[in-house]
Write a protein that binds this DNA or RNA. Structure first.
Lengths: 222, 222
DNA sequence: AAACTGAAAACTGTTGACAGTTTGCGGGCC
DNA sequence: GGCCCGCAAACTGTCAACAGTTTTCAGTTT
């Protein structure tokens, strides 16, 4: 593992490792991020690790209080709603742009991902969600707007963090797939306004489903 | 100036100072950001300064190449277009939300800022732009969506960097003020779709005017 | 027994020095 | 005379130690 000298900087590697630890829930939401502990575990100094921590703070995965350390973000219902307002702003715009700018190759890829989504729904529940993310990313790619793409990536990371563990309602998934079908149709027809409208409806649905399971989980914890 | 011991961390202060240097153009777009030089000038170590640099990289004000240092971002026409696509996504959504959620106090404040804008237009050309920014911020505030507000702040920072020095066409300013009037009207009438539509038109206008002066300036420099 | 006080431990904030890479320049070679 | 090689300077990347703040806990007091 560590025998081959790495080209990337230690700070860059630390970002990837730490992001992995956070997104997989190995460092749970609300848990403190100890600089010396993590640095020792990664066999690096505190400098690069600290840089990585600050980077993830700027990505919104960690939250920071002066002299009191950083923790993994644990969003409540209010923050979740705010996050989905940002997500809607970005992804609705992306859907509209995608309808205008999509190439035939973009459309083919969207249909391909749709196909994978159906397969994922039939077989594995967890894989389904990752394919769902891939679908949203494909739309953003078709929008051909690099800055919007970057921001969407950051927001979706936070969504992943939010749904680190929670059951998925199959009925909700079917409704989502229907939304996706309509989206592909609107983008195929180059109907920008309709694509944005459907995306808004879709994201409202996803948000409500997520809020439902969130309150459920928080009710159990107290 | 430096006699009073500061409460904020050195890194935090360095962020503010460095951001000021960049936004005022004291460190010009394209110029390299030397860590040891800046650290010595600010009388701090390289650690906190480096943290500040990385922070501004994440804000998009600086760009970074491994082992080759960081520079102040100098956006070309293509990047400017991409920036305004992101800005439109965010501010159009904000305008729509503002129309839905605005309080009477929000509306009053918008009208107050409009009044200041007219004054600024009559008197000082540079002040006019700052009041214009205040207007946009007032709309975002009325939208009451904290994450969108944060992102808009970052994007507007980059716009400020973009227009570090360039003449403003008075005719354009008048058109902008008309847009602002229509925006206040739509938000006052709680017409969400109309507010978003006007914001889109307005930002397209601002973008085109900015692109015009940008190409003009780049033609002179070579 | 509960609450306050003080010191010690743990952790973040900062510093200066060391290591590796890139860049620019001068000498040698074709 | 032009091009290539190699060295040195400058700068970024990394590290280990020091300083300051917050938290914790034991001891004391009421």
């Amino acid at each position: 593992m560590t025998g081959i000298p790495q080209r990337q900087s230690l700070a860059g590697q630390a970002v990837d490792v730490l992001r992995g630890l956070v997104l997989t829930g190995e460092i749970a939401p609300g848990a403190r991020v100890n600089e010396v502990d993590l640095a020792q575990r990664m066999r690096i100094s505190r400098g690069p690790l600290r840089e990585a921590v600050r980077h993830l703070i700027s990505e919104g995965l960690l939250v920071y209080e002066p002299h009191r350390g950083t923790r993994v973000r644990r969003a409540d219902a209010q923050e979740t709603r705010a996050l989905f307002e940002l997500r809607a702003a970005l992804e609705c715009a992306a859907a509209g742009l995608a309808a205008t700018r999509r190439t035939d190759a973009d459309l083919s890829r969207l249909r391909l991902v749709m196909h994978d989504t159906r397969l994922g729904f039939e077989s594995d529940r967890r894989a389904a969600y990752h394919v769902d993310l891939a679908f949203h990313r494909a739309i953003v790619a078709a929008a051909a707007s690099p800055l919007i793409a970057d921001q969407v990536r950051l927001v979706q990371q936070q969504v992943i963090l939010l749904r680190s563990r929670h059951a998925i309602d199959p009925g909700h998934e079917r409704a989502s797939m229907d939304d996706h079908d309509l989206l592909v149709a609107a983008i195929g027809a180059r109907d920008s306004a309709e694509a944005a409208r459907i995306m808004a409806v879709h994201l409202d649905r996803v948000r409500d489903q997520m809020l439902a399971t969130l309150e459920e989980g928080q009710g159990g914890v107290g």
